[in-house]
Structures are given as C-alpha cells and as structure tokens.
Design a protein around this nucleic acid. Structure first.
Lengths: 114, 114
DNA sequence: CCTGTGACTTGCATTTTGAAAGTCATTGTA
DNA sequence: TACAATGACTTTCAAAATGCAAGTCACAGG
C-alpha cells in the first residue's frame, strides 16, 4: 500500500472525511435522506457545488452509491454502502461527546420518505 | 445558546475538529507528545504555521492547556484537558473503522518522555 | 562572540471554499 | 402552445485556508 500522508488509520480517515461537510452528508444519509434537495435543505445549508463535490468523492471512496430512481428525466438518489454504514459508531461517539460539551445540541430525528 | 450552523452535536464538533490536522494533534497528545517539535516531527509533517494555529484554537476551545516547563528562556508544552481526553472514544471508533477499511494502516505507538 | 535550541511568526503562491446564478431535460398547468 | 416548476447539478468569481520556506527572539553553552 502507498499512503498519502502516513500509515496511521486516523490520518487516512481524515483524508476522506476531514472537513466541515462530508460527515454531515453521512449524517443526513444515516437519518434517511437520499436526494440532492434533501441534503441542501438541511439547516447547515451546504452550498450546491460543495455538495456535488462531496457526493462524488464519497462515491469514489465507496461510502455511498448513486442510483437512478426514475427515467424521463433520469433522477438519482444516494444510499450508504456497507462501508458507509460502518461509520455509525464513529457518529455515535461524536454525538455522545458533542452533546456533553455543547449544551443545547440535540440529535436530529430520522426523516420519513414518500 | 446560539449556534453557528445548527444545534446538531455533530455539526458543532466539526466546527472545531473538522479539518485534516486538528485531530492529528489530538492523536499526538494522546500518544504522549507534548512539545512543538514533537508535533512537527510526526510523519504527516504538519506545517509550522498550521500547528501554531491549531494549538491556539484547541486551547481556546478548552481541549488542551499550555504550560511552561522551564524559564530562561520560557518554554511551553501542551497537555490534554479532561474535555480533550474525552475524545479518546471518538479516536478509538475512527481507528477501528480506519484499520478495517484502509488495509495496512496501524495504530501508532505511544511515545516515551525524558 | 558565535552557534544552537525551541517555539513560534511572516510572506507569498496555490488550493479550497462559498454564495449566487445558470443549465438542462421533462412534466404539469393555463 | 406557451410558461412555470422540478430536480440534479455546473459555472463564475471573490474570499478564506493551506503549504512551503525563511525569519525572529531569548537565552545557553563553548
């Protein structure tokens, strides 16, 4: 294997998830969101170009899969892969620490579909 | 409470830790590193100005404390606060996921002192 | 006086981010 | 038949963050 910065697992995770937006997209997916506009309508208001970029990178990294849900015109939605689902414990640990140290923060509720 | 982006705990954690370097500084501290040059000599080669910036922000956020270890001339070292120590489970979860999905990565060993 | 050490700071070019507006195919509405 | 709306993006461009190299500052030891 050839690593970009080092063979530290944390470093390599940060190379794909280390920014202010990527994990929020994962969070939205975990909460049940699937479509472009659902992500852009989250309260953090991710910019459209940033979202497109992150979705592309997450797909390349194998954390999400893009899938058409209709034709004419074709429209896509995004789903977590098993690898992506595996991040749940990381999100959990972050939520536990975050709720403790940022009083007033609260876990977001799952979103319903259709 | 007034939150920058939203009241989501994950979001607020990302506002302080969401970049490619901050968590690596925390990692080094957890491994036992304390001094400026110890951080700059980690294999990821953090730039000196970035390190200074992150140390300042981590201190402001209450995750680390700066402490003089000698005078004439005065020299400083950094230590994790209890709040900072609380991040260990987050690092653990990241390491578990990272080792699984980036084959060849390995947890770094603790460093010795003096 | 001269060199070294440790913890930074400065200057500047490159890269990334963010806000707003635009594109494109197709469908529903007047 | 035109027109607005929908959904998933792309483009433009200014502003902020990053990265590299070099410089600073206080003192210690030779």
């Amino acid at each position: 294997m050839k690593f970009k910065r080092s063979f530290c697992p944390i470093t390599n995770v940060l190379d794909t998830l280390g920014d202010k937006w990527t994990l929020l997209v994962i969070r939205d997916l975990v909460l049940g969101k699937r479509r472009y506009q659902e992500f852009t309508s989250s309260p953090e208001r991710i910019a459209s170009n940033i979202l497109a970029d992150r979705l592309k990178k997450l797909e390349t990294a194998g954390l999400i899969a893009r899938q058409a849900y209709q034709r004419n015109p074709v429209r896509y939605e995004y789903l977590l892969t098993e690898k992506g689902e595996g991040l749940k414990p990381v999100l959990e640990a972050i939520i536990v620490w975050g709720k403790k140290h940022y009083p007033g923060t609260k876990r977001f509720p799952r979103v319903e579909h259709r």
